[in-house]
């Protein structure tokens, strides 16, 4: 079995510090990490490797420093690492990124056929969740998004069963291989690399692929040129200058009453609208909706 895991190096938003006196955000010196969601994907791949002896290849499209993130993956136990880097790739949105990754994965597939491709659910710096699906569509693989758990994997029958979080519940899905899986957080926990892993990561060669290495000829589809989306503006929500109010009362019932009184006092039209709505409901259900106490 051959599994590819696509990762991204991102700034560690948890380590963006706030100055203790002035409360301003300190942007400098924020370390780069492997996108946390990707680590769930990698750990899932490594568990399959532990169980089946699969080969795990990690890859990322990014600037040269992203090599560090790949080495980190090697320290956890990935077998190979490929950095896909080229000046023409910069400024890529998710469409262009999935184009480059899909091309590289096609090349990788020729070297050793791929059975599974993992990505994280999304990145913490973009939050789009579009790259995994983009890869699946481009490669024509099965797509399984928001997967929380792999229940069964049968490489011989080329089949797997996963749990997928969906609105209102969990779906259990069976799929054929090859497939692209985008992993949810929390289903596993990344291992702590042991010392031999650290040595391997420090010593092993990270392969560097430029556009030729990744098998890319159509430069209109990559980088800024291949990116139809542009971020027009980024802004934080304005904090509202409204103070919290305290509602007092001896019992919960009293407090609730005081709260409702206050609400109606502050929003006078609310009382009328609510009553009108209740009347309407009562009319529709012809008595059935009446509170139990009254009907008794």
């Amino acid at each position: 079995m051959h599994i590819a895991v696509c990762i991204k190096q991102v700034p560690d938003s948890a380590q963006i510090r706030v100055h203790p006196v002035t409360n301003t955000i300190m942007r400098q010196g924020v370390p780069a990490i492997v996108n946390p969601f990707d680590l769930f994907a990698l750990e899932e791949a490594l568990r399959i490797k532990d169980a089946t002896g699969a080969t795990v290849t990690v890859l990322t499209m990014g600037p040269p420093p992203a090599e560090e993130a790949l080495r980190k993956c090697l320290s956890f136990g990935a077998d190979h690492a490929i950095l896909i880097t080229d000046k023409v790739f910069s400024g890529a949105d998710t469409l262009a990124t999935s184009f480059v990754l899909a091309s590289a994965l096609r090349t990788l597939n020729e070297r050793q056929p791929l059975d599974l491709i993992f990505t994280g659910k999304q990145t913490i710096d973009g939050d789009t969740a579009q790259v995994g699906p983009g890869i699946a569509i481009r490669l024509g693989y099965q797509l399984l998004t928001y997967v929380s758990k792999i229940r069964e994997l049968d490489p011989a029958a080329r089949r797997l069963v996963v749990e997928r979080r969906a609105e209102g519940g969990v779906q259990v899905l069976q799929s054929a291989l090859p497939a692209v899986i985008t992993m949810l957080e929390g289903g596993n926990e990344m291992r702590f690399a042991d010392m031999p892993g650290m040595f391997r990561a420090a010593r092993q060669e990270v392969e560097i692929w430029n556009r030729d290495g990744a098998g890319i000829t159509d430069l209109t589809q990559v980088g800024l040129k291949g990116s139809p989306t542009a971020v027009a503006q980024v802004f934080g929500p304005k904090p509202k200058a409204v103070k919290a109010q305290r509602i007092e009362g001896a019992t919960p019932a009293e407090m609730a009453e005081a709260f409702v009184d206050k609400l109606f006092a502050d929003f006078p039209q609310l009382e009328g609208e609510l009553l009108a709505h209740l009347d309407q409901l009562a009319g529709q259900d012809s008595g059935l909706a009446a509170p139990q106490g009254e009907s008794a």
Partner: peptide, 8 residues
């Protein structure tokens, strides 16, 4: 070191 198999 604090890592497993960490004696060097």
């Amino acid at each position: 070191t604090e890592r497993e198999k960490g004696d060097i």
